[in-house]
Structures are given as C-alpha cells and as structure tokens.
Nucleic acid binder design. Structure first.
Lengths: 192, 192
DNA sequence: ACCTGAACACCGTTCAAGT
DNA sequence: ACCTGAACACCGTTCAAGT
C-alpha cells in the first residue's frame, strides 16, 4: 500500500545546508538531517545516495546561488569597476555562508568532484569581465589569477589566518585594485 | 611495575602524517595511527589529547617544514626573483604534500586554531622580501595579496578546479610575474 | 608507568518487515 | 511506495584492570 512521501530531495538539501552552516561539515550527519525533515535516517536513502552525495548536492546548490550573486554584481559598463564589484560580491557571499563557501573549494577524490561547471552564468560574467581587461589571449591566465587571489584571500580570512593586525577590508581593496591593474592590458593610467 | 614506553609523540605525529598523506584526513583514525606505531588506540591518549590535538600537532609539523623550505628558496639578492622563487617553492611543497598542505588553510573553531605563527623563519623571509618590493607602508597589504594569490591558486589546483584546459604552470608563472609587479612601488617617473 | 580489553555513545549504511 | 527498527561495521574516548 503506497504511503505519501513525507519529504523531498529539495527539502533534504535545504535542511542539510542549514545544518552545515550551523554546525559545520562534521555536524552534518544523516541523523540530524533526517530529524530536521521529520524522518528517520534510513529514509533519506530513498532520495539521496548517501552522505557524500548529499554534500555534493548541497555544493551544487551553493554554486548556483553564488552564480546568481556574481551575475548581479556586474552593473556598470566599466570592466575594472565590475570586476572589483564581482570580487566584493564573492567575498560578501562567503561571509554570509562561510561553511557553504568552504564546500566549493575543498579537495575531493576525482570521482566525487561536484562538477561545478564554470559554465554557470555568474562565472561566465566574471570571465567576460576579465577578458575585457586582459584581452582574449591572456584571459585564461588572468581569470585564474583573479579567482585564485579572491578565493585565497577569503579562505585565509575565514580560517583566521590574518593575525598580524591591520585592516582586512583595506587589504582586500588594495588587492582588488592591484590585481585588476596587473591583469589589464594597459597600465590603468593610460585607459580612457 | 613500570613498563618501557613503546612509542613517542614524535613517532605518533610522523605516523599520523604518513597516514594523512596516504589516506586523506578522513582516513586518519586513531586506530590506524595506533597500529602504525605498534600500540592500541587507547594508548595514544597517554601522549596526545585526542584526535584533533593530533591533527593540530601534525599541522604544526607541516608548518615548520614549510617554513624551512620557504627560507631556503630566497637565494638571490633580487627581491622580485626571490619572491617568485618563494612562491614556486610554496607550490612545490604543496604538490609534494597535498593533504598536509590542505591542513594549513582549513577552517577551524577559534579554540583549535593551530597557532601557526607568522613568526616562523620562512614566513619572515617572505615578509621581508615583500617589504623590499612594496615598501614599509604597504607591506602588510602586499604580503596578504601575495599569500592569498599563491594559496588560492594552489588550493584550486589541488581541488581540481582548473578545468578549462590551458597550461596551469604557465598560469602560475603569469600570476607570479603580474603580482610581483602589482605590489612593487612604481619606478620613479611613471604615473598612476 | 604504560598498555589493554571492554564499554559507551556515536557514526553511515543495509535490509527485512511493516503500513 | 515509503518508512522503520534492528543490525553491522566502523568511529573517538574513557577507565578499571593487568603487567
């Protein structure tokens, strides 16, 4: 006799994300998630293949949200200003969802890799903005430089690695400005 | 009746590091470490306060080794070349010990933070080299920019995040050059 | 002193049995 | 169909008992 579903994959992912953010990745247990959606742990396996699959689904959810945030950040027609805005939006997102953010850049065995496509609109936007500054030929190296800097800065910041005092916001602004200039085809002063 | 110690903290840390590198952080269990040093899991608690303490000790060991590697990398008197060499040594270390490296930049509750002092000689060397390029006033922001870029690049690389093809080594060289230029004081006469 | 087995409270995961 | 309790193989950690 069929019984109605008491939960859904979407609800499980949402609950998992909430628990992740509140308790950290170690606190994200199948039992907690099950309790949050009103079910017992074994029932989760009807919709999700296991814990690592759940974590992967959460990471995909986070990537999508981040993508829309980045997309919305490029509002001017000036690529230099847009790129700074994109980097700042990236950082603000990480501050709002530090545990979720950490999920995006963690080391994983090849097989479990979350296929976070750089094809997501927000990353495309970033990529296009970089290309406008660095030129078609150097766009890949330039994009990698920008993303490496931004993600590294944020990871260190969230890991509490900036312990020498100073103004961290100011260091981010300094870095953003310098990096934008560094990847630009012409020195900033010559642009019009 | 006293029995002789069958292992030591140093041996435990070394075994733990080997297991970490071979099996990943999840594979680093007290039982495995115990087996590797020829003892049962409960005996580890005589020398180490628990698993997170063990991980902290391993992280400190890694930080010290990284420090000596960085220190040895600065061999010329040209700070620009030295800084590139330091960044490359940093990257090479991470490639040799990817799991150990990941330990250094992971998010931790404040209380468990591994007190990886920036006072370690290798980091001092890097800091001094940056200062020679960026000047005393901007050295903190400049150092943060360099380390953020390098650590971010390496994390992404090790996480398998560079999936758009292209030459990753070339992207690192490109980034290193551009960043060194970006944090350097402008030569006299050039306007901004 | 140091080491150990046994025990406890947790995990993730499987599966037969219930509705 | 979906959910569940029971079971299994693991964890980390504690502690009384052994040497």
């Amino acid at each position: 006799m069929p019984t109605p579903a008491r939960t859904s994959t979407a609800q499980i992912v949402a609950a998992g994300r909430a628990i992740l953010e509140a308790e950290g990745l170690d606190g994200l247990t199948m039992q907690r998630v099950a309790a949050a959606v009103g079910v017992r742990a074994p029932s989760l396996y009807k919709r999700v293949d296991g814990r690592s699959e759940l974590v992967r689904l959460i990471a995909l959810d986070v990537a999508n949200e981040l993508s829309t945030v980045l997309e919305a950040a490029a509002t001017t027609r000036d690529p230099a200003r847009d790129l700074v805005a994109i980097a700042s939006a990236f950082r603000a997102f990480a501050h709002r969802h530090p545990e979720a953010y950490a999920l995006l850049f963690r080391r994983l065995p090849e097989s479990l890799r979350p296929a976070i496509d750089m094809g997501l609109p927000g990353f495309e936007t970033m990529f296009r903005t970089v290309e406008a500054l660095a030129g078609r030929e150097r766009r890949l190296e330039a994009a990698r430089t920008v993303v490496a800097w931004a993600s590294g800065f944020i990871s260190m910041e969230l890991a509490g690695a900036f312990r020498l005092g100073g103004d961290v916001d100011e260091a981010f602004e300094y870095g953003a400005e310098r990096i934008v200039a560094a990847i630009s085809r012409r020195p900033a002063g010559e642009r019009r």
